[in-house]
């Protein structure tokens, strides 16, 4: 079965309906129409550009270009993690911890999945490597950003409690233990929810895409399970690393809570 071709005028039809929605919110004075239209425009421009990049990348099929693309994606994700935190660690630590933990988890799991499980030839074949890494990074980024934001914000709000526990002679790990658990939880919850609801409440996007593109559902399901597991691994280990490094950075060598290392929200 071939995929039915989509032409630009058919997309324009969908776009005009988004404009109608924006018009409705404008009439009702909900103040959403502007950001809605800008976001829709960004989708078109960004996806069109990435389409061009992917076309070139697939045609070239060179490890250098694939790696460059992967690094660019990682750095943008790192920037996004930093931007999503209300009270981020100062001095590049927010970017550094976020980026490093995403690198460690997403890259390792993606490379392992490609070489050991899927096994395309060559292993870095862009049709497999880039979408897989993209899904990994996108989800890991959400997990890491949520967890770090929760960690630093809760530590800020509960600074008196943390210090009180330090005064009673607890180690820094004990004093921030509850907050670390909460941060881990908020980082992993979206993925746990997604796995629990998969196929019952929601049909995952990748599987839907594969079925639309003509894959037999049984194969699409197998790929979806694989992808959900790898995403969970990436998110889990990434969040783990980020929470461990982030909470350590909140204390100095004398186990003092150092909230002066957090930026004031602007």
């Amino acid at each position: 079965m071939d995929v039915i071709e989509l032409s630009w005028w058919q997309l324009a039809l969908a776009a005009s309906m988004v404009v109608v929605l924006a018009g409705c919110t404008a009439v009702m004075r909900l103040g959403m129409s502007r950001s809605l239209l800008i976001a829709a425009l960004r989708t078109v421009v960004q996806l069109a550009l990435i389409g061009l990049v992917l076309e070139a990348l697939f045609a070239a099929e060179r490890l250098v270009w694939v790696s460059l693309m992967a690094v660019a994606m990682l750095l943008i994700a790192g920037r996004e993690v930093m931007a999503r935190q209300k009270r981020r660690l100062k001095g590049g630590w927010a970017f550094g911890i976020g980026t490093l933990s995403m690198f460690l988890s997403s890259f390792t799991v993606t490379v392992l999945t490609l070489t050991v499980i899927i096994g395309p030839d060559p292993w870095y074949r862009p049709q497999y490597a880039i979408p897989l890494l993209g899904m990994m990074l996108g989800n890991t980024m959400t997990g890491v950003a949520l967890a770090l934001d929760r960690l630093t914000d809760t530590a800020w709000q509960q600074r008196a409690v943390i210090e009180s526990r330090l005064m009673l002679g607890q180690s820094w790990q004990e004093a921030i233990g509850d907050i670390r658990r909460e941060a881990m939880r908020s980082g992993l919850m979206p993925m746990i929810n997604a796995m629990a609801a998969a196929g019952v409440v929601s049909l995952p996007g990748m599987m839907t895409g594969q079925i639309l593109a003509g894959s037999p559902p049984a194969l699409a399901v197998k790929y979806q399970i694989l992808v959900m597991f790898t995403i969970t691994l990436g998110t889990g280990f990434g969040t783990l690393a980020a929470v461990a490094a982030g909470s350590r950075r909140l204390f100095d060598s004398r186990e003092r809570l150092r909230l002066d290392r957090l930026a004031v929200p602007g």
Partner: peptide, 14 residues
């Protein structure tokens, strides 16, 4: 801190 115990003016409970 286990030996040099500070009791702050405002107590905290978790």
């Amino acid at each position: 801190r286990r030996q040099v115990m500070l009791v702050p003016a405002e107590s905290q409970w978790w």
